[in-house]
Design a protein around this nucleic acid. Structure first.
Lengths: 335, 335
DNA sequence: GCCCGTCATCGAAGCGCTTCGATACGTCAT
DNA sequence: ATGACGTATCGAAGCGCTTCGATGACGGGC
């Protein structure tokens, strides 16, 4: 293994000079810098991560805790993870993967052992047991999602309330007066997972302020449950012309169930979904949708963390505005 | 921060004794061990990961490189990742997440900087550019998937050849004589990704040895492509009564397309899929299927790595036997 | 011509841990 | 009694890096 003293000898300088070339923390003459860089390249030198962490008390590693419970959209989690890793690399950091299963103890372990410099926690619940721990830790953290009481913890997420509202407004703008939200499975609401509730709230308040008729219907993530719910809705609400689906696994089923019941999409019933763009594009018909900007959320979360590590002040809450992409599944209401 | 000397003082022993209590590498009297453990607990001591890595040249971290290309089943990747993390924790290791995007350079970086002790690489291609690198690295690695020429690299995966064959045998056993494989998107074959080709080979050789009629049809992962392919198959092959689908995104579409064409499943056409169990169970009808045992592959990969780290010999190739679960989508052929 | 400030570099201390002798003390066979 | 051995513990060296203070060398202002 080649070490810093080898590089120093090869370049004819002291180890500290090599270190300063690498970190840029002191000015080094152009000429020396060139020689050192050349030696590094020639010898294939890589600083030893452990030694560096020990001496500088910075590991350049972030922890990312991902959820693995049911009712969670796996592809979205994956997108988050990938964007976090990518963003972290831009800041010269790596990412340590933790599962929700590890819980508070896992977070404490990696933080207290100085394995990581900072933490990102996904899928935050309203009353999340990890919150007190994160507050007590002396390391910066960012939550993806909003708990009931964030205090001074840094949070970021899509503005789900606005997302729910934006879908209603889209439908209202097309002239629909009677709509419904086919929501997440009941346990997701019961768990008080913030985002599902927020979409429902945004939906409800926009429905109210636009003087529409519309309510929220939780739905299990199975085809049977979805078909049953659609049938019931159609039977009980003959005037229904707009549906918002916030339940990824069943969006396809909902559309097919509507058609099976003789309603054309979008001519008779307009459908809007909250799901990844890829899914919306490939659906038949392509769905008007609001996507979770996983890429952006992950990237911004890392940026926030880096700012905190640098001691810069960051906003406690970051709500990303939703974007509705209109596709073929929504159209003006017939009258 | 509390360090080993604090614990040592508190327990009235030397730092090395504390270290030996922790590592178990020398015998310590019962009484001393008790006192040290108690001090550790009381002070909330956590060894500094960097210091430990520096002194012992073991970081207790594994690298996991995940794919992020198209045509890859995201939920399966996620299952792998979670099972790797879980298994690693059982061995007191953590997992560093790398994306395929980082390529060889990323692997070299984390290995040479001693950030990780060993590496797991997913989605291995037939001619994978990372292979020479892994060979040159002085750290153990395990590949999930089989390249064209593994040499002495350790590989593990589902036995896809056997999986393809097992599906054919299942259909043959039910009396079907004319079958077809609806395969992965063309680019997956073109990329020489091993598993798609192996399923096709297993399918073909079993078809031959059972004297059946049957060929392989690559298929884009879109509903349109799937419908089109099903229509063509039905038109060109009136005697077709069995279909194997190895293309997760379109399994649902294939079944619906068959029904739309007036074929009942399984009465007229039997369908077998290669997809996660969860998907097969929730399909309508529930699908007879062979699942990728992601959980097991991930866990075994970690076990192999740990054995290698301990200097134990491990088999170069591990092929997990496929298991076909019969569900409602396959039935005896009518005659 | 002298002092001061800047720039470039060096040397040494120290980060917190592991590990390798060395030491001390019994115990047991001779 | 004596030496050989095993067990329990200690002390010190060192892992490879960063960082702080010190040291020269040089140029400008007076």
């Amino acid at each position: 293994m080649v070490k810093i003293t080898d590089v120093a000898r090869h370049a004819g300088v002291s180890p500290s000079t090599v270190s300063y070339v690498l970190s840029g923390k002191r000015s080094i003459s152009e000429e020396t810098r060139r020689r050192v860089r050349e030696s590094i390249r020639e010898l294939g030198y890589r600083p030893h991560a452990g030694a560096r962490a020990l001496a500088s008390s910075r590991s350049n590693v972030l922890a990312l805790m991902i959820p693995l419970r049911s009712g969670i959209a796996v592809p979205v989690v994956m997108q988050f993870a990938v964007s976090v890793v990518t963003a972290a690399r831009r800041h010269d950091h790596d990412v340590l993967l933790l599962t929700q299963e590890e819980g508070e103890e896992g977070l404490r372990r990696v933080a207290d052992s100085a394995l990581v410099d900072a933490l990102i926690v996904m899928d935050v619940q309203m009353e999340d047991p990890r919150l007190p721990l994160l507050r007590s830790l002396d390391r910066p953290s960012v939550l993806i999602g909003f708990p009931a009481d964030a205090g001074d913890l840094t949070c970021i997420d899509l503005d789900f309330h606005a997302a729910g509202a934006v879908c209603v407004e889209h439908l209202a703008g097309l002239g629909h007066r009677e709509i419904a939200l086919i929501g997440s499975p009941p346990e997701v609401y019961a768990r008080q997972t913030g985002y599902a509730q927020r979409v429902a709230d945004g939906f409800a308040s926009a429905v109210a302020s636009h003087g529409l008729k519309g309510e929220v219907h939780p739905c299990e993530a199975t085809a049977d449950a979805a078909r049953e719910l659609v049938a019931r809705l159609l039977a009980e609400r003959p005037g229904l012309t707009g549906v918002l689906v916030h339940n990824e696994p069943v969006v396809g089923t909902v559309v097919r169930a509507l058609r099976a019941a003789g309603r054309r999409v979008p001519e008779d019933v307009s459908v809007v979904a909250m799901c990844p763009d890829e899914m919306a594009e490939h659906a038949e018909p392509p769905l008007s949708s609001v996507a979770i900007p996983a890429e952006e959320v992950g990237g911004r979360a890392v940026d926030l963390l880096m700012a905190k590590l640098d001691g810069a002040p960051v906003p406690a809450a970051t709500l990303l505005p939703p974007t509705l992409t209109r596709r073929a599944s929504s159209a003006p209401a017939a009258h």
